[in-house]
Amino acid sequence: MKGRDTFTMAVIKELYQLFLQKDNADYNEQKSIRRKIRKKGFYISDFAKDMNSTDFRLLCISGRITITDKDKYMKSDDVAEFLCNNDDNQSNEIRLGNNENLCSKNAKPQDTENFKEGLGPWVDELSEILILGSLPSDVSLREQAYYQNKSKNSFWKLMHGLFGEGPDSKEFLMKHHIALWDCLAAANREGSLDSNILGGERPNNIQQLLESHPSIRRIVINGKSKAKGYFDRYFSDLYSHIDVKIVSSSSNANSIEFEAKLEEWKKILK
């Protein structure tokens, strides 16, 4: 570890403000902010490849960063809210680091207009493979069903290429022991593109899902860029506990031809 993992509450609050600045800064500004963060003794590379304000806050909540004088400040409303996080939907309880449940007030989105909350998992007691994306598109959120923006995503075409014809439905996937969910429970995003996700991220409780569905033997990450990045950020400890495979994204923005993509998915799902 290059830096420290123990700080006073005063320094934690200073670091958090720097991360908030970093969330909305351009590349050159981020380099300057990173230097300021390192001067305070915190090295992002000790914990992840990159980090935003939400990631830093979750590190503090989980106990992976120790706050030496936390008890002294816990009666302060702003400190108590900073160190707590909750969602009324218990399936989205966050677990990080030591896997303790984290709870108190509802997390406040940074961008109310563009704050998107994802869908619950499609899973049953016979599910064997869990496919994880990043966050559903706006079309999918409106339809309350996964991968509904079919002109821009070939997920269902891939599923039919693997398992034969049938409806684009949860029941079709359950028949073939496939579960669906996302790495993120919520985030700030303008439109549907993963590249437009800007802070406000809340990871889903993948660990809890696996514990409650022991039939799941493999995780398949749908995308070698964003989805994998979120999985690595929030769930890297799972690599040592379950078989994890990464496949090319089903998104049509991925330049790989469909037939080549299908062959890649066959090796993982069949």
Rank of each mutant, 00 (worst) to 15 (best):
M1W: 04
R4W: 08
T6W: 00
F7A: 04
V11M: 07
I12P: 04
E14V: 02
L15N: 06
Q17D: 10
L18I: 03
L20T: 04
Q21D: 11
K22M: 04
N24G: 09
D26W: 00
E29K: 15
K31Y: 03
S32N: 15
S32C: 10
R35T: 13
K36E: 14
K36N: 09
I37P: 00
R38H: 08
K39L: 06
K40G: 02
G41M: 01
G41C: 04
F42T: 02
F42A: 03
F42W: 02
S45Y: 05
D46T: 05
K49H: 09
D55R: 05
C60Q: 04
R64F: 10
I65T: 04
I65Y: 01
D69G: 08
D69Q: 07
K70I: 11
D71C: 11
K72W: 09
Y73W: 10
M74Y: 05
S76G: 10
L83S: 09
C84S: 15
C84H: 15
N85Y: 06
N86A: 15
D88E: 15
S91Q: 12
N92T: 14
N92C: 10
N98Q: 14
K105L: 14
Q110N: 13
D111F: 03
E113R: 13
F115I: 08
F115V: 10
P121C: 10
V123L: 05
D124G: 12
E125I: 10
L126M: 09
L126N: 14
S127P: 02
E128H: 06
E128S: 07
I129K: 03
L130D: 02
G133C: 01
S137L: 03
D138Y: 02
D138H: 08
L141Y: 00
Q144I: 03
N149I: 04
S151G: 13
K152M: 11
K152R: 13
N153E: 08
N153Q: 07
S154W: 00
W156L: 05
L158M: 06
L158I: 11
L162K: 07
G166D: 06
P167F: 13
K170E: 08
E171V: 07
E171N: 10
H177M: 04
A179P: 06
W181Q: 04
L193Y: 11
L193N: 06
D194F: 10
N196Y: 05
L198D: 05
G199C: 08
G199T: 10
G200H: 03
P203R: 05
S212Q: 15
P214F: 08
S215A: 14
R217L: 08
R217A: 13
R218F: 02
I221N: 02
I221H: 01
I221S: 02
S225E: 13
S225V: 09
F231S: 05
D232E: 15
D232C: 11
R233P: 02
Y234E: 07
D237E: 11
Y239P: 01
S240Q: 15
D243K: 15
K245T: 12
K245W: 01
S248N: 10
I256V: 15
I256P: 01
F258P: 00
A260M: 03
E263T: 11
E264S: 09
E264N: 11
E264T: 07
W265M: 00
K266D: 07
K266H: 08
K267R: 11
K267A: 14
I268H: 11
K270G: 07
